[in-house]
Design a protein around this nucleic acid. Structure first.
Lengths: 140, 140
DNA sequence: GTGGATGCAAACGCTTTGCAGGTTT
DNA sequence: AAACCTGCAAAGCGTTTGCATCCAC
């Protein structure tokens, strides 16, 4: 399986036109294994267990690289720092106005998304990102 | 009119339980006169023209105070800094994925908002904040 | 008079950058 | 060999904080 994983990461890098490095591969695997919207520091902490000498700067550089090259998607942030979207399915976010917790909600479950691709003013729609602001069950 | 403005600001402060100060009043008026999603620095630059000695810290403190006490609403940010929502009507945002420009779009024009107030998992909806990601006319 | 507000400067957290040395292509 | 990547340390930016002074209530 290591061979398989290594191979697909190679392919992924090839597809996105970026070089394969050990740090990059471990970073990628660690991020894949995280859910939600991890912060760079959280990612760094985990990667450090596998590569103790890795630098935080490298983590930042590669998170950006992954986002820019389309490997991961950056999410619009309610956190104060850069976050990456680890849920690859179409979904939106419920943001608790009290405790600030963010929970994913599937596009189906939310059930309000339009199919329009062009808006007044000529704006061309790529996708909708909905934040539902409200109270989570715990805070009600 | 100065009297009127002064009076309504007094009332506003009373309603929100905050003290009336000169800096606070000028800050409020300046912010009212700005549209879109001004940054603290932008606000600071304008206020400084009227009160040259004002401190940036004071601007930050009062923006937070205004947001916390409900005078203004903080918007979820695509900018890298704190932004305040100056458009008081129900609306959403169109974010250009290329040039990052943010344009408001009225709730009516967007036409996709649900009336549901409770979501799966028991989340209690206060409001929806929709970001439409896409290309603005200039970037298409 | 007392609690809160201001201004200043220093501190802060997160992120980026410059650079020397090492790795990938 | 050329281009790129890494790690380190320093710098950068936006924001917050501590504190002495000052103002609103």
């Amino acid at each position: 399986m290591q061979v398989t994983a290594a191979k697909s990461f190679r392919d992924l890098c090839a597809e996105h036109g970026i070089a394969v490095t050990h740090q990059r591969q471990v970073l990628y695997e660690v991020m894949q294994g995280m859910s939600g919207h991890p912060s760079p520091e959280e990612v760094y902490a985990r990667v450090k267990k596998k590569i103790p000498a890795i630098s935080l700067a490298t983590v930042y550089k590669n998170i950006h690289l992954f986002v820019e090259s389309g490997v991961f998607r950056k999410m619009s942030m309610h956190h104060g720092s850069v976050r990456v979207e680890m849920n690859s399915e179409a979904h939106h976010h419920m943001v608790c106005s009290k405790c600030k917790a963010i929970t994913d909600i599937g596009e189906q479950e939310l059930g309000l998304v339009s199919k329009r691709t062009r808006l007044p003013g000529g704006f061309l729609v790529e996708r909708y990102a909905v934040d539902v602001i409200g109270l989570c069950p715990k805070c009600q």
